[in-house]
Design a protein around this nucleic acid. Sequence first.
DNA 1: CATCTTTTGTTTCATCGCGAACCTAAATCG
DNA 2: CGATTTAGGTTCGCGATGAAACAAAAGATG
Lengths: 418, 418
Amino acid sequence: MSLDVPDLSPRRSQPATTAAATASARQSTLRESNLALVVRTVAAAAEAPSRAEVAAATGMTRATASRLVDELVRAGIVDEIERPAVLRRGRPMTPLVAGSRIVALGLQVDAGFLAARLVDLRGQTLAEHLQPADLAGSDPAPAFVRLGSASEALLARLPPDVRLIGAGLALPGIVDQETGRLLHAPNLGWSDLDPADLLGSTLAGLPLTVGNEADLAAATVSHHAPGRAGKLSDFLYLSGEIGIGGAAVRGGQVVTGRHGWAGEIGHVCVDPNGPPCRCGSTGCLEQYAGRHALTTAAGLTPDTPADQLTELARNGHRTAQTAITRAARALGIALASTMNILDIPTVVLGGYLATLTPLLRPDVEEILQGRVLSARWISPTVRAHPQPTAPAATGAAFRRLAAVVADPARWTAGPHRR
Amino acid sequence: MSLDVPDLSPRRSQPATTAAATASARQSTLRESNLALVVRTVAAAAEAPSRAEVAAATGMTRATASRLVDELVRAGIVDEIERPAVLRRGRPMTPLVAGSRIVALGLQVDAGFLAARLVDLRGQTLAEHLQPADLAGSDPAPAFVRLGSASEALLARLPPDVRLIGAGLALPGIVDQETGRLLHAPNLGWSDLDPADLLGSTLAGLPLTVGNEADLAAATVSHHAPGRAGKLSDFLYLSGEIGIGGAAVRGGQVVTGRHGWAGEIGHVCVDPNGPPCRCGSTGCLEQYAGRHALTTAAGLTPDTPADQLTELARNGHRTAQTAITRAARALGIALASTMNILDIPTVVLGGYLATLTPLLRPDVEEILQGRVLSARWISPTVRAHPQPTAPAATGAAFRRLAAVVADPARWTAGPHRR
DNA sequence: CATCTTTTGTTTCATCGCGAACCTAAATCG
DNA sequence: CGATTTAGGTTCGCGATGAAACAAAAGATG
């Protein structure tokens, strides 16, 4: 079961059908697979590799690797860059990197801001548009109109030779993966709306995928760029502005679940007799470690920044300390349950929780050590991952770009499939 | 990302390596993939298909399907069976089924019994050996010796033409997937031992995989036979004799986690102030809904059978009713957290919990409806799945046989790889 | 400075696996 | 008995990769 050999088995991306009615592999499938392997290899490499290095890394002959690279270069999915000044003996190589003319649009709607960002296959931001906005309880339509015109402005300045391959949208709520509808966003007070529809004509014709904010933010922790893995490939991710968004990453892939509703660690029950949550349940983690819950428990205004809370606690502010201890305890309990379910002993805290990590970590790790079944063999760890603004917008773009890495044949000039 | 096209990408069975250093696909890979597809198709089919039907189901030409089937028949992985009496017009077909001469040995050690079972690729039990045993707190060595001689007896009576492809062992505890060691089995009181070593010479040379009992029992819920999916492909599974074993199944695959420690739903925290658990934590689900906890709370002896408990509760036995309500409440809380993490709204209760399901279900489902975020769109359901004796032994055999379905080329006469 | 060595990348040809078209086998139907 | 229908085999061409020789472009060396 663990061969180091390619697996031509059918994709299980959609719910498994009853029978094993999946397409067989043919010669062209072989080529598609190897094209994808070359793109993955180029994208994942720390240093721009040559054709020969790609061949060595993949086990292909130089001939095959070269043929495939040529096709990818023609399609703009891989770029040849200037050869380096430092030369070794032998014919100088032609360094290969991911194509900078393959671009996706990443969008994010948050309770506090709107973001639109253009990202290329190398993971670099070409242009972005960020604007603060107080959207909690607002009418959704104007927000999407604003986001649409921001996108338009970005796209207008795009050089003519880039290929815009799609758009991704991150939303802080429950999204239906099939239809792309936002089912419920408690912090915004929005329910059952179709973002693709509300964004309107701006993005007409551009394929749009909608996803959960925490899931997409987590993707920027696990990946520096599309196809380039970060240091961590297995971790739980918690982020939150008002509530707590959660995601689980396994093998570098975000665990979205069949409908896209997995990873809601913020609504793991800490204490069934605890305070009521907006979600209708009681004692959810969010009610202890959410920003709102935390600042309120500390006797501060809801929008007190995290570093101020940290400073107060460090200077002996008793209620602040109690609130943080309470949050740490809740985090420990909820994360322990999550780790027992998922076998992922690493937690990454993002957003304002990243700032609080030094205060939270000792208590959380102690509780995890006592409550996680496998702690005796692998000690659970908590770490912070400070994010740039609107990481989920980048993550949304990554998700689209990852499709090019996974199946580049769809974007080459080759014979069109389906 | 969701094409109905085979995916030749490398297996991610082992932890993702840093770079994308995976083998490229070659012609032989194509063949291996299509061989596997044929085996899957034959194994999954409800009615034994002909070569032509295999071709139609997979999208291959009849020529290709026929070639591949021939090779599989030669290797004994697929069997041609007698043509049916009822004939249609045209040349009669040759029905194909999974090979009955490919056999695996499934073993299970439980606190209450030992089991050894020979299962073929069709999922049928060829022979089995079950014996009661009170192993809690016992010395592990004699138990494995007994299991070894039971296996020996089974293997001795095996016809000479069968191919024994391996053995699987189910244990009620934490197992290290890499090494196959049992790290900790609280109900047995065993720690850190090597089952392959203790089973000794009997199975020498036979590859042995060790797995968690609940994970393997869940595999028999999701699959009727190796490669033949059951009705459910996404569910949480709970079983327990003394404690509660848990497993999560997603897309027909048991979610084992990176180290094999996932799915420990029995140790999700229901109430941080609850009773202490053997695992070192407090308020685990097991302490409310485990058999021991349940019978004790009902004021009965620990080994009271489930149907007797049911009868008492139905006849108005107050403490029995209270105990069951308490268990249902705990199940609701723990399962709600699990569902929020995994996006799997179906629970299957096995073992003695299956018997109690009629009493538990109303309360559990009501709590789930209130605590699961996605319940408004998909209502969580609880169902029972009564199992035969030692289901995990069958599951352990299935796991080995599934390797043949996944990669039949390793068992054909073709050129040996690696 | 001419030549050797080394490494990259290309070209040519053989091999292998699948698809397409045609052919044979074995049954029912008329 | 021949026509029809369906299962399955045979032959040949195509496409993709591998192997090996070749061409290119640099430093190393005398």
